[in-house]
Design a protein around this nucleic acid. Structure first.
Length: 961
DNA sequence: TTAAGGGACATTTTT
DNA sequence: TGTCCCTTAA
């Protein structure tokens, strides 16, 4: 590909190497191209080299890409740039601390040191674990903060607050708060008053009450305030009042919060010390100490500062990162590049105001840093603003759509205002514009998406630009399906797998929601307390039907195999060994198994965890969705499925924006937040513990109930997410919704069509499992059926007609409990263990087994993949005994209960087995029979043909719907 | 236009 | 658990 010539705006950026620049670089405007050119231009000068230029990126992959692109365009090779400061803020801080950081904590009055052995703790779940440990000790040592422990719903909440404070540059010191940190905690009354006044303005020329007063019409509903709170009418004024009194603003804002601040301070400082003593630094603390070091140590600052600083994806930086960029600048040659409309990382403390209010913040931050010393060279900064307006990626139609998307209300009542004036209009550069923008809708949303993709592939109506610039029909690889949530992506993958649809998933999977983690958790629960929740998972995995599991759980008579395994696990010393054995048992290897193992090990080693702790750790992982990165490829020509966040920076000819459904985010798990930090209000307590009178109680904070109604709330980031998604598209955009399209989709100029999803079976040239009647080695199909699940009545279908118990089947010896003991005995005997029969049932088993020759196998679950209406399903079954001789195969199922001759049911069970073995041993006949231990008789059972099993699946599913 | 009651709804993104 | 939407009454 030939290197393009820069356009005028790009040239201004490339050539303007001296001074301060803010570059508004929308999607597809050649930002990386211009930045790397600029970098090359600087370092190719004889007087500068890569060590003089800091290029800070947000992700590691972005740093790598930058390096590669620079190598293409400069005199430097990849090796020479290997150690060049082109890296993320985090890794640069790490580097800085390794070199100069030993005494950094001393600047906060902390005695502990950062040493060569201090590790970065990059797993947030593990950090949360450590924090809980810390907090447990802290509570014991600090009874004076008891009121706050009462109202804190969990330590996680406090850790969140600490992270947020760190991201804003608010740090604790041994004596009070570092620098002007406390003013952030107090908040800015003037700024609050502005918001308050805006919300308190009567509407309709004074005929209608203010938004704020209306909002407060439910003041106190479902709440309990302390007695000193004003009554609702005192707060709002009587009927007909249009606005709140001005002094309400004062009343809610000014409050004695010394104790609250002291609590947060002590916990924050204590945790810093704890981490250092434990020899680790979190991501947040890396930046914290780097900042402190650069601020306090002039010598280090001079040594670490760069001639040129460039920051990529500036919209994703946090407040403290902005300040770090200033401290790392030896001159005012600072260039930040970004696009506020693509700021979607607020949960990582990205602060969109860094870019939206760049000039103001630059002024303010520089002044703050220079208040007591001459630290940063931005005394009277006068940044040049460059706008890259030419879009090289998308058609004009797509660009237009994206600009509407970022202005679309998320609910009927919402109005979107500023900062939309700041949208820099882009002009398109595409060779042709045949853009299709459409919406589809069906309740089977996943199927709808897949069949839409199928319709698109090879369809000239959706032509995309080929290598030669000419239109060509699209392929699977041209299509990306975006989702907001990983869950949705995972569901889509599952449905795609049913149809053998070529999809590749890119991004994180929820480790704790995978089978290895679930089974590990199940076994830990079994070990801990023979917990039913654990057994249910284990038994289901083996293939027991729901009814059977219920029965086993009721009676507590677990099958022999798993019970023995449990005893074996009990003998193991460490939780790590247990994990290894469990994962081994199920054949989990490689990445999928390594990650849980690693997690188990690191949690265990570091915190002397008990089994109960580990169970809770995994449970929390399931709740919070700890993830591990995967990139599951499905060959070259496959649809990419990913979350919008992982798609950032990428581009695709065709984008399907899935899951455009209604859905607002409810309160977070674990209860409502107790302590919050939000500009401009500062630190707030949402609940108050009080021992007024005889009734200690956690009260709601009436002040905060007023304040939060003045805070901006809205869907700005959701809109930006949509913007990012749409602007990935080069040519076509399809929105897909289930039953209920959301307000975004309603608000966009897109016709939503109800479609009839039908995913056609694919002919991809090679036989797949779905083409075969069955394939023994195939993995489980997506829909599992056990024989028992194929009937809609009870398993014991003819229980109503059971004959009088015969002499062999007295109540003592009947039923599952007894049956399972016979089964255990039979298995042990068949395996050659030294066991002796203790009743007639077992004696008859001995007679049977002694009379059999050949290879005996016991209790082996099998799965039979079959196609039903072009969907692949899996039938699974377990037989008690398989006997293989050179000329035939026998499948025998023991029946201990003479009264339960549910042959129709047994027949299905054996049929599954029959078909699997018939495939395995294609050269000899397979016979299926039942052995009644009560009278020692055997009964041949004719297996059902596959067609009848398929019919049963259909019937079972129809019954289920 | 305001007040007040009640029901439906829904658990995210990851350096 | 908070929010939004709908209903009913004043």
């Amino acid at each position: 590909m030939s290197e393009p010539t820069p356009n005028d705006a790009q040239r201004e950026l490339i050539e303007g190497t001296e001074g301060t620049y803010l570059v508004d670089a929308g999607p597809g405007t050649g930002k990386t191209f211009a930045v790397t050119r600029r970098y090359g231009r600087i370092v190719d000068r004889p007087e500068t080299d890569p060590d003089d230029v800091l290029l800070a990126t947000f992700t590691r992959s972005a740093a790598t890409e930058m390096k590669e692109r620079i190598v293409d365009r400069s005199a430097y090779g990849l090796r020479e740039l290997a150690d060049a400061p082109i890296r993320t803020f985090h890794s640069h801080c790490h580097e800085l601390l390794q070199e100069h950081g030993y005494a950094a904590p001393a600047h906060l009055g902390i005695d502990e040191r950062i040493t060569g052995s201090t590790r970065i703790l990059d797993d947030e779940l593990i950090e949360a674990e450590r924090f809980r440990e810390f907090f447990g000790g802290f509570r014991d040592d600090h009874p004076e903060h008891a009121d706050f422990y009462r109202v804190l719903s969990s330590p996680d909440e406090l850790l969140d607050l600490i992270r947020e404070l760190a991201s804003k540059g608010v740090f604790p010191a041994a004596d009070g708060w570092y620098r002007d940190g406390e003013s952030h905690l107090d908040g800015d009354f003037e700024a609050f008053k502005e918001r308050f006044d805006a919300a308190n303005e009567p509407r309709n020329d004074g005929r209608k009450q203010s938004v704020l007063r209306e909002d407060l019409s439910r003041f106190g509903r479902d709440k309990t305030y302390r007695p000193d709170a004003p009554s609702k009418s005192a707060l709002r004024g009587g009927r007909g009042t249009k606005r709140l009194d001005d002094d309400v603003a004062d009343a809610v804002f000014r409050e004695d919060r010394e104790a609250l601040k002291a609590f947060v301070h002590d916990a924050y400082l204590g945790y810093l010390r704890f981490a250092l003593r434990r020899n680790y630094l979190s991501f947040s603390f890396l930046q914290l100490f780097a900042f402190v070091l650069l601020c306090e140590d002039e010598r280090v600052r001079e040594a670490a500062a760069f001639e040129y600083v460039m920051v990529d994806e500036f919209q994703d930086t946090s407040e403290v990162q902005f300040k770090l960029a200033l401290l790392l600048s030896a001159t005012d040659n600072l260039c930040v590049v970004g696009d506020w409309k693509q700021s979607i990382y607020s949960f990582q403390y990205a602060d969109v105001d860094n870019i939206l209010e760049f000039e103001g913040r630059l002024d303010r931050f520089a002044a703050d840093l220079n208040a007591d010393a001459d630290r940063v060279p931005f005394d009277s900064p006068d940044p040049t603003r460059i706008e890259l307006r030419e879009n090289y990626r998308s058609t004009a139609s797509v660009i237009d759509l994206s600009e509407r998307a970022v202005a679309t209300p998320a609910s009927s009542g919402e109005t979107v205002e500023a900062p939309l004036d700041d949208v820099v209009e882009l002009s398109a550069n595409a060779a042709f514009d045949n853009t299709v923008i459409e919406g589809i809708r069906h309740e089977d949303e996943h199927e709808a998406v897949l069949s839409k993709v199928q319709e698109i592939v090879g369809n000239d109506d959706y032509a995309v630009e080929g290598e030669d610039g000419e239109p060509r029909p699209p392929e699977y690889g041209d299509v990306a399906v975006f989702t907001r949530t990983r869950d949705y992506g995972r569901e889509l993958l599952e449905v795609a797998a049913e149809h053998d649809f070529p999809v590749a998933y890119d991004g994180g999977i929820e480790l704790f929601r995978t089978d290895p983690a679930k089974l590990l958790l199940a076994w830990l629960r079994i070990l801990d307390a023979d917990a039913e929740r654990g057994w249910a998972v284990v038994l289901e995995r083996i293939g027991y039907a729901v009814d059977e599991i219920d029965h086993i759980l009721e009676t507590g008579s677990y099958p022999a195999g798993p019970a023995e395994f449990r005893d074996e696990l009990r003998d193991l010393e460490s939780v790590g060994a247990v994990a290894r054995r469990v994962l081994d048992r199920y054949g989990f290897t490689g990445d999928v198994a390594d990650v849980p193992l690693h997690t188990v090990q690191s949690v265990h080693d570091s915190t002397t965890a008990t089994r109960g702790d580990l169970i809770r750790h995994i449970e929390r992982g399931v709740e919070t969705g700890g993830t591990v990165d995967v990139s599951a490829s499905a060959g070259d020509d496959a649809v990419t499925v990913q979350t919008i966040h992982t798609a950032k920076g990428l581009e695709y000819p065709i984008v399907v924006m899935a899951n455009m459904n209604e859905g607002r985010f409810p309160p977070r798990a674990g209860g409502s937040s107790v302590i919050q930090f939000r500009d401009p209000v500062g630190l707030r307590r949402r609940k108050v513990y009080s021992e007024d009178g005889a009734h200690p109680h956690v009260y709601d904070d009436w002040r905060y109930d007023v304040i939060r109604r003045c805070l901006p709330r809205g869907y700005d980031e959701e809109r930006r997410l949509l913007y990012v998604a749409v602007t990935r598209a080069e040519s076509h955009v399809v929105f897909a919704a289930g039953e209920d399209p959301n307000a975004f989709l309603d608000g966009l100029p897109v016709a939503v069509e109800e479609i009839d999803p039908r995913v056609e079976p694919l002919d991809r040239g090679e036989p797949t499992d779905a083409d075969l009647p069955f394939a023994v080695t195939a993995p489980d199909g997506p829909i599992g059926h056990t024989p028992h699940s194929l009937i809609d009545e009870s398993v014991f279908e003819d229980a109503g007609e059971r004959p009088e118990p015969g002499p062999e089947a007295d109540p003592e010896t009947r039923g599952m409990d007894f049956g399972s003991r016979v089964h255990d005995f039979a298995e042990a005997y068949a395996l050659g263990d030294d066991v002796t029969p203790s009743n007639d049932h077992e004696r008859r088993i001995v007679e049977l087994l002694d009379g059999l020759s050949g290879d005996l196998r016991v209790e082996e679950p099998v799965t039979l993949p079959v196609a039903v209406d072009d969907r692949r399903v899996t039938l699974s079954g377990i037989a008690d005994l398989v006997r293989v001789t050179p000329d035939r195969v026998e499948v025998i199922d023991y029946k201990t209960d003479a009264t339960r001759r549910a042959q129709a049911e047994y027949r299905k069970q054996l049929s599954v087995y029959y078909h699997v073995l018939d495939e395995w041993f294609a050269d000899r006949p397979v016979e299926t029979s039942l052995f009644y231990t009560s009278d020692g008789t055997r009964e041949r059972i004719d297996p059902l043909p596959i067609e009848e099993l398929q019919d049963l699946v259909r019937a079972a599913e129809a019954a289920r719907d």
